[in-house]
Structures are given as C-alpha cells and as structure tokens.
Write a protein that binds this DNA or RNA. Structure first.
Lengths: 258, 258
DNA sequence: GAATGTGAAAAGATTCACAGCA
DNA sequence: TGCTGTGAATCTTTTCACATTC
C-alpha cells in the first residue's frame, strides 16, 4: 500500500546547513523583523534567542552555519542579519503559490496576510467544485481543477498548497507534480507519495492536538499517581475493542474541505 | 523582551517514550484506523511503515517503547494496536477544547471534522469582536472574550487553541493559563511565554512555506550551478538593505484574524 | 520461514565552556 | 570587558543487523 516514495533523506543537510537549523531560521527572521520595525540597530544572541524562544548557544551555533555575521563584544546588526537570513531562505525572490481546495481552510489561507510579505504570492486558487469557479476569494478568482496544469504552467509556480479532503489529496498532488511543481505544503491528513526531488511538508492539526493530549494526560496522571496503570492484558487474539465508534471516519480532511 | 519562560525541556522523554516517538504515534494511528476501516486484521511493520511514511525499523523501535504488541512471524493486530496507541495518546478520553479567535482560521478549525473523532470536542468559541458574539459558527455559539475565564472554568477544558492575531495572542494565552488551561495550540505567529508546566505547540504556515522555499531555492541552484554565490561582502556597518518593503508588517496573524 | 524486538553503532542535534576578537 | 564563534562533550534519534519467537 502507498507507493512509499517519499521519506525525506533526513540527512539532507542541504549545503551544510542542518535541517534543524533551517527550521529555526524563519523563527529568527520573525524576531529580527520585529526588532527592525522598532528600529533596534543591534541585538545580542542572548536577547534574540529570548525573542525567538530558543537558547543562545543554539542560536549562535545556527548562525555559525551561515557565516560570521556578528561582532564580538557587540552582537548582531539587525538589518544585516535580516537580509542574510532572508537570502539564505530564498526570500529575496518572489514565490508564486497555488492553493488547491478552497474550503474553509483554503479560504483562510488565501486571506492569510503573512503570505504577501515574505515573498509569497498567491498566484491562483483552484477547486473542484464548479459552483465555486468564478467566485472571488480574497480578491482572487477561483479556477476549476480542469485548468490546474495550464495554471501551474502559465504562472510558473513551484510551490503548491493542498487543502483538499484527504481523499483527493494524492490525486491533486500527482497532478501538481506532473505539472512541474516541486514543493508541496500538505494540509490533508494523508501521506503523500511523491517522486524523488519533490519536497513535501505537512501540517496536521489533529496530530498536534494528539501530541498535546499525550502530555496533558501525563500531567493529570502525575497529580493523582497511578490510576489506570493496569497493564494491557489482552493478547492479540480476540483483540480488545474498547472505544468503539468505528463508524467515525479516520481519513478526514485537515479542515472542512472544499 | 519576552518573558522567555517556555522552552520545552526537550529531554522530556515523558515517561520513557521519546518525544520523537510521541510525535509519530498519531501518524501510525491514522494509518491503522484506515486499515481498521478496511477490516484488515493484521499488518506487518513493513506495510504499516509504508502507509505511515516512515521506515520499518523506526516504527518497530517506536512500538517497542509502548510494549510488545506484535507477534513474531505475523505482525501486529490492527484493532489491538489502534486501542493501545489511542490509550497511550490519551484519546480514550474526551478532550474539550476552546478556540479563541474566530476569524477565517478559527472558523475553519471549528468546522474541522477531524476534531470530533479522536476524542476532541469543541466546547466553546471565543472572540473579542462583539459583532460576532451570539453568532453561530459550526453550530456553536460564539462567546465574547469577557466570558473566557468563566467558560474555561465551567466547561473544564484543558486545551486551548489560539487563532487570534499575533498582537493579542500573549494576552489571550495569559488569560487561558490563568483560567487553568495547561496545553495550548498556537496559530498566531508569535512566541508565547508560559509558566512551567504549560505545554505550547505552534503551527505556523509562514514558517513551513519558508522552509519549502529554502529547499526550492537549493534545487534551482543545482540545475544552474553557481550564480549568486557572491559571498556577503558588506560588513555590519552600513548594513545592507536589499529587499525593501519594510512597511509590510512582520507580526501578522497566522491567518486573517477575528 | 517470517517478522518482531532490541542491543549496538552511527548520525544528528544540543549544550557546554572558553578562546579569541572588537 | 562583553559577546561571538566553535571545538568538545553530551544527549537524542535513527539505522543496522540479528537473535528470538511464533
């Protein structure tokens, strides 16, 4: 099942910069942008780290992968660092983005103010529902799925956002990839199979909540120690079947679909 | 700046289960639920791993932290594993959730189908805009922020979702925490300060896109090797100031706010 | 024979702690 | 003196490979 072709190499250390560091650069950038707007000229690793919510040693190590952009005894020049990180992230160029699936979430994304700044531009909105076609969301006309290939081709987008129901996600993904898209942000709660060379990042609300629930449960358990520690006794034979409701779903979209 | 009080201990290995493993459990659960619905009785680590998009060694190691729920030579009993993982994640109980900030995103979340299953229940919607108060979103009445404390108290929620603009996020967070909430899912693009014992997870669309852009840029660079490798020459003095538009924003909400 | 469970090795990420520079 | 930049130590996560069990 599942053509299991993704699996990010993990060891991708894209050009020497560790993935973990890349994932934090946007965080630093955000903090720096805020400082920049307040016209703060320089910032120390300690201050910036606090603003970004990491510790200073980590931040300095992260920056060391980019080069030596600080000044000992002084700190970092805010504007300079904003530029360097932006450049490293590729934000000095324009990134047209196409959003597929204009349901509640898709519409929310289309309206997302943070898109415009940072170099991302919503080039097109696409949905399979004909009744949406022609409508305008966030000032952008919604196009029908039929035109997907044409749109991707003409607008030269390389990043696609999938906000469709889980059931359509792989299909949409395949078409986006076939049309030439090489980066996908997936909001549908499903594992996407993509050929080598295509990047997929996923955002799944349900998963985040489940992780929170895990920790929350633990907290509760600490207060009132031992309560449900009854070790699972039933062996894989007449499999336990607690928590029924199998009729729920299990393959639902990240958010109300198109 | 920022009362920097969060910073998850990282070494949290909550009760022996590594964080990395906890983060994958929901993924396994989703794959297993799908199998369960197709009435597949057992599954091998290889198959399940493919369905979840990880490799089988990792999956087996992950499961080994939960206990020995498989059968050598056979695989895992789907129903049994669904139950065990659900229990481990705390999904066998009901988790009332409150969503604060009913803008585009908040509404999308309220409508999220995946909430209901998995044990999460939207107990209340809260917004600061009086014109929204009383309206019904996803069949739930929107309450005014004034009632936040009362609502949290009465409905006994322990998980709060913040979907407000960045500017209000910390304030809302403080009130939620003061009201007794100990787990927060933050969609606002800002670092939240919370006291010890409160868990925060963040989802930031803009960050995901920036990470994609980083890799996308790299790909482009590989095709046409060397092009903008001109090493940053300007030293932190008359700081470079490329990519103007400083008038954009930089502290915007994850998605159009309330 | 087939597939789990797990020690041990390898790879990555974080933190320490301090030399070195402004 | 103050703060960066970075080797070295530590901790975490992933992967390997195989003994063990059904």
């Amino acid at each position: 099942m599942a053509t299991g072709r993704n699996h990010r190499p993990a060891t991708t250390r894209s050009r020497g910069i560790p993935e973990a560091t890349v994932a934090r650069l946007p965080l630093y950038l955000r903090a720096l942008t805020a400082l920049s707007e307040r016209s703060v000229p320089t910032v120390s690793s300690e201050e910036l780290a606090a603003a970004a919510g990491v510790n200073s040693a980590k931040l300095r190590k992260d920056f060391s992968y980019l080069g030596s952009y600080g000044t000992r005894g002084v700190g970092y020049d805010v504007e300079y660092l904003v530029y360097q990180i932006s450049r490293e992230l590729g934000l000095t160029q324009d990134w047209p983005v196409v959003i597929v699936g204009i349901g509640n979430l898709g519409a929310a994304l289309a309206n997302y103010g943070g898109f415009a700044s940072r170099g991302f531009r919503v080039a097109a909105l696409i949905d399979a529902d004909p009744s949406l076609t022609g409508r305008s969301v966030a000032g952008i006309d919604v196009k029908h799925t039929d035109q997907l290939e044409q749109i991707v081709d003409e607008s030269g987008v390389s990043i696609g956002v999938i906000a469709t129901p889980a059931g359509s996600a792989q299909q949409v993904c395949d078409r986006l990839v076939a049309a030439g898209i090489t980066s996908i942000l997936n909001f549908a709660p499903t594992v996407l199979s993509v050929p080598e060379g295509v990047d997929v990042r996923k955002v799944d609300l349900s998963i985040e909540l489940q992780i929170l629930a895990f920790h929350e449960q633990r907290k509760a358990g600490e207060e009132a120690p031992e309560e449900e520690t009854a070790p699972p006794a039933v062996p894989p034979a007449a499999a336990v079947s607690k928590r029924p409701e199998p009729g729920s779903d299990g393959d639902r979209p990240a958010v109300m679909p198109a």
